[in-house]
Design a protein around this nucleic acid. Structure first.
Lengths: 187, 187
DNA sequence: AGACAACTAGAACCATCGTACAATTACTTC
DNA sequence: GAAGTAATTGTACGATGGTTCTAGTTGTCT
């Protein structure tokens, strides 16, 4: 609800910018304090604006979280699309992306997981999360035409990410890649 | 902190019972409203006791959540141990357990996922969550001696569970089993 | 029976949060 | 430059929640 952005005249441009800024601040908060830390006030403070502005652009906190997950999913999708378009070894690059969840990408991966968990309880978010996994599947289709292998690949990538988040950091890209390759191979 | 229970005399028995009762109520709340819905008051109301009691047994909300996740993990572990001890086809029975996340076991699986996500941010919980996955690995070791196959199996089981939670219900035990079997086979 | 610790109840304090609202400013359009 | 709409601010209300405190009860040991 409360969606503008269809008009292309100057009026709404500023608004869209603010909107993006607020979402960005929300993601920062999620990365730092988790989804539970997302409050109008925390987000507003992070963005350097007043509390009323966040409620102006997102009537309810839920709207804000939905927008945040959507943004995260879009970013991820874009990332994968780029890998698919430019890489000569997509699985290797994807493995690097997954493995990054241990280091510099940890907070991002944590945010992704928290928001994705949130999606399980909010029907409105499920299509977003599903599209997310479909992109990973697209990547697998490059290497196999066996639907079951694709399914294993997607599941493994999700499971690996979870494992990395819980195993405090040890994640060798080469190792991740090997596991992913094995998932693709299969009997 | 605040851990008793080492003494075996009568004094603490009542206390341990209360403790278990509070944890049980906490899990009910988590299943119903998610981890975010866990408050001293909500838990107390669920258990039919006063708010001060929950703080008496669990000084902070965090302690309560930690105890709840530990309990969930223990239950899961026990479940798997029983499958390993008694089943003639552990993978089939495990698949049934995973597939149940779609139907009657959905709330339970949701609670597990939320608490496990919580673990990623709480170092104190990581060993618990890790033991959890080790039990699944134990199950895989029954069927293969290839460490990589075991790793794929564990990751797949986690990913499948996530997929089931997001794909609103469609989860055929036979299908889950087939995917798990494929993960074990591998090239 | 008395002492002492475990346990339970009820209320209250203080902080935070979601949300609403009126007032003010910035921008666009005519 | 006047009018009108979008954007922004400051403030406040009502509700909820974590935590603490005090007082009272129960059970156990000597």
């Amino acid at each position: 609800m409360g969606d503008e952005g269809t008009t292309t005249d100057g009026r709404r441009v500023r608004g869209q910018r603010r909107r993006a800024q607020i979402i960005e601040a929300t993601l920062t908060v999620v990365r730092r304090d988790g989804a539970a830390g997302v409050t109008h006030r925390a987000v507003a403070k992070e963005a350097g604006i007043t509390t009323s502005l966040t409620t102006y652009y997102f009537a309810t906190l839920d709207d804000l979280l939905v927008a945040a997950l959507t943004e995260v999913a879009d970013t991820y999708t874009e990332h994968i699309r780029r890998i698919m378009d430019t890489s000569d070894d997509p699985v290797r690059d994807f493995a690097a992306l997954v493995a990054a969840s241990a280091g510099e990408g940890r907070e991002r991966a944590l945010a992704e997981r928290e928001l994705s968990t949130l999606a399980a309880r909010r029907p409105a978010l499920r299509p977003v999360a599903r599209r997310w996994r479909e992109r990973v599947a697209d990547l697998a289709w490059l290497r196999t035409s066996d639907p079951r292998a694709v399914e294993v690949f997607v599941a493994v990538s999700e499971g690996l990410c979870a494992a990395i988040l819980l195993d405090e950091g040890r994640a060798d890209p080469e190792h991740v890649r090997a596991v992913l390759e094995r998932a693709l191979a299969g009997g």
